[in-house]
Simulated scan of single mutants.
Amino acid sequence: MVGRSVRKSGCPSAECVDGRDLVEVRDRAGRQRHGAQGDAGNLSERERSVIQLVALGYSNKEISSRLSLSIKTIETYRTRATDKLELHSRAAIVRFAHSNGWLAELQ
């Protein structure tokens, strides 16, 4: 093999990290950075309502008052929804809601 070297990891070139193609690694990193998005169809109506209100900037306390539920219940719905959608920040929730047209529905 002319011009190819094997790195310590066993990969034939710098295009491989831990046995994975760098394109796959970059794609995964991009999804994580931009908030990987799960299927919104897996959310219950209540989870969706909570996510919409979080995206609009309401606090858990404000959401609990608005929906007449306890703060703990709101936290549970929010956690379940963000786990299902693989969202890890308020900014990711806002991006997700905006890209799915959920914010326009409430205005």
Rank of each mutant, 00 (worst) to 15 (best):
G57H: 10
I74P: 03
D83Q: 13
I74D: 00
A81E: 00
L69G: 01
R78Y: 00
S70Y: 08
Q52M: 13
R33I: 06
L53R: 07
G38F: 04
E105M: 13
S65L: 14
D83P: 01
G30W: 01
T76M: 01
R33C: 03
D21P: 03
Q107E: 15
T73I: 01
L85T: 03
G57N: 10
T73H: 09
A40I: 13
A36T: 01
L106N: 14
T82C: 11
L106K: 15
L106I: 15
L56H: 07
V94Y: 11
S68K: 15
H98G: 10
R28F: 07
K61A: 14
D21T: 07
R28Y: 08
S65H: 14
Q32L: 12
H98C: 11
K84V: 00
A104S: 12
G19V: 00
R20S: 00
R78Q: 00
D39G: 04
R28P: 04
V94Q: 13
R95K: 12
G19K: 05
G38P: 05
G19F: 04
A92K: 05
V23R: 13
A92Q: 15
L85F: 03
I51L: 14
Y58N: 10
E105C: 05
Y77A: 05
L103C: 09
I71T: 13
Q107M: 12
S99K: 14
A29L: 10
A81W: 00
R66F: 10
W102R: 08
G19A: 03
Y58W: 14
L22E: 06
V25L: 04
Q107V: 13
I71Y: 09
A40W: 07
V23L: 12
R90A: 11
T73D: 04
V23K: 12
D39Q: 08
A104I: 12
D21N: 13
Y58T: 02
S89V: 11
E75A: 13
L53D: 06
G35H: 03
D83W: 00
I93A: 06
R20I: 05
G41A: 08
E75G: 12
A36D: 07
A36K: 06
S59F: 06
D27M: 01
H98R: 15
V94S: 09
V25K: 00
A91Q: 14
A40Q: 06
S99P: 04
I63R: 03
W102Q: 09
R28I: 08
T79N: 10
R95A: 09
R28H: 09
G35V: 02
A91P: 04
E24A: 10
E86S: 12
